[in-house]
Every structure is written in C-alpha cells, then in structure tokens.
Design a protein around this nucleic acid. Structure first.
Lengths: 190, 190
DNA sequence: ATTATAGTAGGACGATTATCCTATTGCGAG
DNA sequence: CTCGCAATAGGATAATCGTCCTACTATAAT
C-alpha cells in the first residue's frame, strides 16, 4: 500500500525537510542551501523536482493542508458532540506546546511572515487558516449559532493565535496552559 | 526648544526611515540599500551613524519605546479611572486599524519575526511587549486584581495580538472592529 | 539490446547582501 | 586663519542568495 516510486519518495523527503526548516527558521530565513544540506541531496537534484523555492513552499503548504485535513477528520470521527470537537482543537494547542513555545504556530508564523511582502504566497498559505476557519464555523453551526458561526470561528482562531504568539515571544509554556484553560471554559459555556 | 544638531537630526531621520521600512517590510525584508534610498543619504554616511544594521534596529526599538512611553503617560493623564485607561489601549487598536490591517501590529510582527532566528534582537524588541505588559498590569492592580494582574495583562495583550494578526492576514477591518468591541465589553465587565 | 526518460550530480552565474575603506567636504573651536 | 573632527561621499569587497546549465547514471519500455 501507498507505494511511492523512488522519485516520489525523494520529492516527499524534500518537502518534509523544507517544512521543518520553514517552521524553525521561517521561509525567508531558510536558504536553498539549507534545504540542500538538510536533505542530503544536491542542488541540481532538488531543482529537478521544484523549479523555484516558491514551488517548494507551495508543496509544503499542500502537505500541511493534507495533514490538517486528516486531523480534522479524525476529530470528527472521535466525537459527535460539537463542543468536544471544539475542545479537540484546543487540545491540539496544549499537546504541541513545546514546539509552539519554541517556534510559534506553524500556520500563524508562516502567514504573518508572508503577509508583509509576499502577498502572492500568503494567499496560498491563507488556505490553512481557511481550513480551520470553515471547520470551526461548521462546529458552531452544529451548536445552533448559524448567524455568528463564522465570527465565532474567527474569534477562536484569533484567541489561539494570540496565545501562541505571546507564548512564543515569551517562551512561556505556563501562560499557554493558563490561556487554553480559559479557552476550554469559554467553549463549555457556549 | 528641542534643538538637534545637524548630526542628531540626520541620525533621527535615518531611524525614522528605518522604522517605517521595518514596519512595512519587516527587518529582514528591508535591505541596507533600501534604507539608503529611502533616506536620500549615501551608504557611507549612514555607516557613520550606525556600525551595523542591527544597531539601526536597536535605535528603532528605542524610538518605539520612547513614543509608546509618551503615549502611555498621556493616557494616564487623560483619565483617572483604570477602566478608562484600559479602554484607551483598545482605542489605540481601532484608531490605527488601517495600518494594522495593512502591516500588522508594529510590535507583534517585529517580535514574531525576530523570535525565530534572531533571539538576541528579539530580546531587545521584547522590551516593547514588557512596556505594555507592565503598564496594563498596573491598571489591573488599580482595579484591585493584584494577584492576577500580570495574567490579565498578558491575556489582554494576547487578545490584541490575535486580533491584529487575523485582521492582518485577512486584511479585514470589520473583524478588527467586531473583536475590539468584545474587548471593550470584557473590560467593562471586569 | 537499444533507446528514452527519470534521476543524480555539482559547478557556474549574476544579483543582492551587509560591511568596509579611503577620500573629500563642512564647520566650529582655538 | 587653521587645525581637528564631524559629516558626506561612494566605490570595493567578500559572502550568500536563488537559479541555471550541462554532464553522467540508472531504470523502464520497446
């Protein structure tokens, strides 16, 4: 199952390498040479799979999208209760607190970096926000909040981003714990 | 009054130019040449005032600090009621919504950019967060929330950052308005 | 077995980066 | 007037950036 040809495997390796580097150092902070070294390949080989560094980012975004889509599907499967589903979103934050404190939110920091000067790329990475935005809104709809579902989704997204950002800037895991607890309360009281 | 020597004036011009460029394009996204062009000076002249680009950023941070310190003092002068003072903080967000949507929060985006790979510089820029953190905490103390003052300050700071971030990513001023209204409600009900 | 194509390999390229260097000019103190 | 330093000026430099190019090898189809 899931048999990847040699080439497909190499391509996937490049993308996975790039994803981690982009996450840890940002897109602009990651040079092509860094991807070359981290992947153990050579320049020419990587350019055989991707024409530009921007193309690599596109692939990284698609990988993120696929992974998060799978995660969301898993949450829907695990619970029927909309509130429990929303809580799963919050659990993700606490579950990944170590990386969040170290490198910030993978989606948030990427979008925020690209939003300044690379609006073309940011448009692509915004799809990651939209994925969560729509999924969360659907959960709020399940709770009967049809009118305000999207606003609530953006509110929750914003809260999560703010928490991740402050926790990242202050490298403070305790703050992250404290604020996610409040998020859980907020969901319970909806 | 406030007489600046020719050199001091030039230095201030450089810093002001750099501040705007760093805000619009980020620190890494602003080349030294960009500062040269925007200031109308020549490379050698700028290097006469600052040894490195990092030094320019330090000066920019200090300029921000001075400006925000003055702003906070102004808020304290304008109102004695701690809640009103907190509302002034929220007013700042709505008052600057156009730039926030375009370029994000000056403090937040800077810190978030530097937090990834330039921890030395981020430590300096974090002073900007600390300025607000301490000031907000002082206001919560005035409200009798001594124990939780710092936590409340970080909460409010995080909320503000989250709002600015989402509004920036989606270039959505309406969202910013909606969320700041909620912030105002939250403050009123404290 | 031959041919075509996918994959590997790595140096070359021009553009841009931050920084440095040496002149030259301007101005204020003595 | 002149001496000395601040300020202006702008080319030189080495490193790094993303990208391109050509050559070689492996594999799969005919």
């Amino acid at each position: 199952m899931n048999a990847l040809s040699k080439g497909e495997k190499t391509r996937a390796d490049i993308v996975e390498c790039a994803r981690q580097l982009f996450y840890e150092h940002g897109y602009d902070g990651t040079s092509f040479s860094a991807i070359v070294e981290a992947s153990g390949l050579v320049r020419g080989n990587i350019y055989h799979y991707f024409k530009t560094k921007d193309d690599i980012l596109q692939a990284v975004i698609e990988l993120h999208l696929a992974d998060y889509r799978a995660l969301l599907a898993q949450w829907e499967k695990a619970d029927d209760d909309p509130k429990m589903r929303l809580l799963a979103f919050v659990e993700m934050i606490t579950g990944r607190k170590t990386e969040l404190v170290k490198y910030g939110c993978p989606i948030g920091t990427l979008n925020s970096e690209l939003a300044k000067d690379r609006r073309d790329l940011q448009q692509a990475s915004r799809a990651l926000f939209d994925l969560f935005r729509d999924w969360l809104a659907a959960r709020f709809c399940e709770l009967g909040k049809n009118e305000e579902a999207d606003a609530l989704a953006l509110h929750l997204l914003g809260r999560a981003q703010g928490i991740a950002m402050i926790a990242h800037v202050y490298r403070d895991a305790k703050l992250l714990r404290r604020e996610t607890d409040q998020l859980r309360d907020w969901i319970s009281q909806l």
